[in-house]
Design a protein around this nucleic acid. Structure first.
Lengths: 103, 103
DNA sequence: TTGACAATATCGAATTACGATATTAGATTT
DNA sequence: AAATCTAATATCGTAATTCGATATTGTCAA
C-alpha cells in the first residue's frame, strides 16, 4: 500500500472485513492477517488484536479459546448484532463507492 | 452516523471523496462540508481543513484564494497526480466492496 | 474605524495505529 | 518433571488523527 490515502481507505474497511469474514467462518488473528497479506493488504498486530477486542466489547463478535496442536487460538464468530451492523456497513460502503462511479 | 464503525468507514473514504469532487469542480471547505451533511455525513472542521492542507502538501490538490462578496474562500482543484491517486483509490474501493458482496 | 460575518485556521485533549517486545500455555525434549 | 520451543495473543510507548471549541482572517457596510 504505497500511499497513505490508500492505506486509510483500507483501514476504514478493516472492521467491516473482519465482521464479513467472521460471518462466513470462525476466524482468528494470525490467519486473518495472513489472508489479508495474500490479498496485498497489511495491518500491524498492534492494531489488529485491539480491534478484535473492541469488536467483542461492542458485542459484534464473540470469542472462545481453543487449543490446536498445543497452541492457543482465540476464535471469533459474528453475533446477531454484529450481523446487523455488518449489513448496514455493506450498504454504506456500496453507496460510497457507487457515488464515485456514477455521474 | 450512529455507530463508530460506520463513521470510520466513512472517514476512510473522505479523502477520496474530496478528490472526487475536486475533479468535477472547484470546491471549498464550507460548501463541501454542507454537501456532506446533505448526504447524511458529517466531519468536523478541525478535521476537514487540515485534510485539505495535507492533500495540497502532497500535491494532490492545488488552491487559490478568492473573494466572494467580501469573504475569502480557498478554492481547491485536482492536480494531475491527484487524479492518478484518485483512480487508484476508486479501483481499490470498488475491489473492497465487491469482496463484501461476492461469494 | 468599528461591527458584522463567512470562511478558514489552529488549539488541547482523547483516541488510534504502529513496530517492538512480552506473555501465554501446551508440546517436545532431555 | 524441568527446561526449552513455538504459534498465537497481548501489551507497551510513541507518533499521528479526530474532535469540538476557539481564534483569526479579510472585506463590506454603517
Amino acid at each position: 500500500m504505497e500511499d497513505k490515502l490508500l492505506k486509510d481507505l483500507f483501514l476504514g474497511f478493516i472492521k467491516v472485513h473482519i465482521l464479513h469474514h467472521a460471518a462466513k467462518e470462525r476466524i482468528y488473528g494470525q490467519e486473518f492477517s495472513e489472508e489479508l497479506q495474500r490479498h496485498g493488504y497489511q495491518i500491524s498486530y498492534g492494531t489488529l488484536y485491539p480491534l478484535f477486542h473492541k469488536l467483542e466489547e461492542q458485542g459484534y463478535l464473540k470469542s472462545e479459546n481453543e487449543n490446536v496442536k498445543g497452541k492457543v487460538r482465540r476464535y471469533y464468530t459474528l453475533t446477531k448484532s454484529g450481523n446487523k451492523i455488518l449489513e448496514k456497513a455493506k450498504l454504506q460502503a456500496k453507496e460510497l463507492v457507487d457515488e464515485l462511479y456514477e455521474e
